[in-house]
Design a protein around this nucleic acid. Sequence first.
DNA 1: TACAGTTGCTAAACCCATTTAGCACGCCAC
DNA 2: GTGGCGTGCTAAATGGGTTTAGCAACTGTA
Lengths: 342, 342
Amino acid sequence: MAAKRVTLADVARLAGLSQTAASMILNGRPDTRLSQDAHDRVNAAAQQLGYRPNVAARGLRTDKTLTIGFISDVVATTRFASGLIKGALEAAEEAGHVMLVLETGGEPAREAEAIAAVLDRQVDGIIFATMRARELFIPDLPAGTSVVMLNATNARYHTSVLPDEEEGGRSAVQLLVDAGHRSGIALIGQNDEVEREVFRSATVARRVAGIRSAMAANDLEFFAEESIWLWEPEDGYRSTKALLERGNDVRALVCMNDRIAFGAYQALGEAGLSVPDDVSIVSFDNDELAAYLRPGLTTVGLPHEEMGRRAVELLLSGQDAGQVLIPMPVVRRRSIAEVPQG
Amino acid sequence: MAAKRVTLADVARLAGLSQTAASMILNGRPDTRLSQDAHDRVNAAAQQLGYRPNVAARGLRTDKTLTIGFISDVVATTRFASGLIKGALEAAEEAGHVMLVLETGGEPAREAEAIAAVLDRQVDGIIFATMRARELFIPDLPAGTSVVMLNATNARYHTSVLPDEEEGGRSAVQLLVDAGHRSGIALIGQNDEVEREVFRSATVARRVAGIRSAMAANDLEFFAEESIWLWEPEDGYRSTKALLERGNDVRALVCMNDRIAFGAYQALGEAGLSVPDDVSIVSFDNDELAAYLRPGLTTVGLPHEEMGRRAVELLLSGQDAGQVLIPMPVVRRRSIAEVPQG
DNA sequence: TACAGTTGCTAAACCCATTTAGCACGCCAC
DNA sequence: GTGGCGTGCTAAATGGGTTTAGCAACTGTA
């Protein structure tokens, strides 16, 4: 970048005052005793020259760079959690900050590099984000570094922002209950028996807990639970197909995410069953898919933007807020049918 | 960020040499006449203290911050073009650079703010990206600012990276031709008659041109062209349904993008027609949707990652490369059936 | 009149690096 | 013995801001 910028010295010179005076006036320092006239001259000069402070130079002295480091595994580069970035970017912009975005692919070596890179640039704080909520191990950071975990947790840094999965799980079941569903409900994507030993993520466990607690509270039971290792459409398709072939009377499906639900739609369609007249479906995430499906999929959404937003706000507020749970919004579309009572 | 870092002065002190010597040695300056012993002592000291230079301080002197500004309308925050960011992020990382990511939502005021913000931080260059390739108007930048347009063009800054849509358009038609399709081919999403006056984007025009040139080269004609204003699944569904209801003998669809194709699958499914046995489909973008569909959708992909990558490489190389066209990869899945000749 | 207290402003240090200019020493040649 | 040169290193300037310490002039009070 060539073409030298206007500096504070230029402003001071034009205003006929010292650099000190110019600095104090432009920063609106309260206790200074500079005259109104001095204020006017400096402001006019700055205006006239189009002066903008050099953030790097200022940061050298003040240790504030108005810059946040956003380090994630694959958040920026996959579509699943890009809402996290969106919310964070917006909140940062509103606070007059800017975000350095780095991705590590979850590799420890790149992660260490990323941390060093943002620290070298004197960021005001770091947000660590993961696509799938999980405990994140991060190397030692200089004492005093502000950190917020986003969709992640960490033993040393307690401030973290997570979706309120337990409540979300309850909401999903409640949608079915409110529509009058009492039997023929299957869970697609999770089977506690089979998955006793697998750890998917801290939040999936909570989602399941919420689902089960709402089922129990309503005296309901799943007549089937299909375990799925990967939560992709293909898997949802196979799983639902297998369930259908076992010949049960399926009336409603709780799918662990929208991609599974997408596969379920495909299997149901092939079997000549219609959503929601024959089978109601409720799911999680509010993936863009959910709106594309016919009929639209009713789902309990991941509040990614709100989470990203809160992470930045917490980071800049500097307080240790512990775990902040963001409510998961219920997005009603047309995949749940009312069941006549009786 | 508290906890003061190790500075060059610390290293110099520990090595028993001047700061000058330490700086020169750590930067590997060639013409210096410092002794091997001095080199060893400085390197050891830096190692021992875990010294990392303060990029901001260095940038103040050298005008290089190893930081790139990435300003886009909605690239980071929607899933459609996040590949652009991914490629750029990777290339930046490989070059030891870091990216400041800002989004403007396409609003001129936010754009001006974004430009000022990255300029205030002395970035080494700026990449302007758009989700839908288009001519982008940007305010005056200081002379000498390095700029690359990504998936966009600009009158003043000529270096831009775009998908090779014309060739991509040809590829799509060629897939059908190679499979033996000669008739019953419809175009979904574009009708030159209707859309004579609408400007979608520079690249859509090229895509269409490529499609038409390949059709002409093979002596083929579309028997129908469905214009669609928005390219969403819902629109693709309606459009295809309308086409089907007109009772033509549809054998193949060229869809302008994967979301339209998604809707086409739904309409075809409802009409009891199977892909690809009854109707073959080829499309564009290689959206993640394409892999979710059953059968998988054959599509000509947007090479977003490669584009992002090239944009960073061009920016850092500093040369004016004009328009760089990145080939669109053909992604073969199962939505095109072979037609028996005769 | 003299001393203290305000008022209005500035010189200089500082942040952390890079870079320019140049010093001190040893050696060689004449 | 001295001018010239190569060797090995450093003091100080620089980049663009913020901040501390303090100066000079004026006002008010005893």
